[in-house]
Amino acid sequence: MTQYPDEPDGAEKGEQPDPYASPSPDRYGSLPPAGSPTPPPYGSPNQFGSAPPPSRQPPYLQQPPYGQPTTPYGQPAPYGQAPAFGNAYGQPMGPPPQSYLVWAILSTLFCCLPLGIASIVFAAQVNSKWSSGDFAGAQESSEKAKKFAIWSALAGVIVVALYIGLIVVVGLGSGLNA
């Protein structure tokens, strides 16, 4: 699933490759998700022509940071040093991190969840930090935006489930009274 070209700011969560997974050959050998209608083209997998590898990690994070082999995200060690790596490369070379802006807009305007406001804030942080060269910070904000996208979706599901449950309960109650 890492082979797909990018989508509009995270239009499909759940099938996203974990941008923080350590780059291992398993990324290419793993099976497609269960709901995927057609398997990703692992056999003929070049999506990007001569583009750099489709990893969502900025390349500097693929360097062993100061002797630590591929420190996983969540451990704070490479964060402070990461912009130095990015600057050493000059331009941001990997694909920009997801801002999940589509999810933020969907949850704010097409649903009714004020969680979406926070999603917009984090989406804005992702792109602001990316533009200003703070690639590690952009990744961090991207992860928060992803969490809020998931929470918004979960909240929507919970509200609908509660509503259906309420209808069932009310229906049963009125049925008993009648």
Binding site: Y4, P5, D6, E7, P8, D9, A11, N46, Q47, F48, G49, A51, P54, P95, P96, S99, L101, V102, I105, I117, I120, V121, A123, A124, Q125, V126, N127, S128, K129, W130, S131, S132
Partner: peptide
């Protein structure tokens, strides 16, 4: 428009290179 751009990227098999400037999302907020 976003969806159309996404589709175009998929057809041309190019990765996403352009991101919306941060100020535009702050303006949206």
């Amino acid at each position: 428009g976003w969806w159309a751009a996404w589709l175009l990227r998929c057809v041309r098999r190019v990765p996403k290179r352009w991101v919306a400037p941060g100020w535009s999302i702050w303006a949206l907020l």
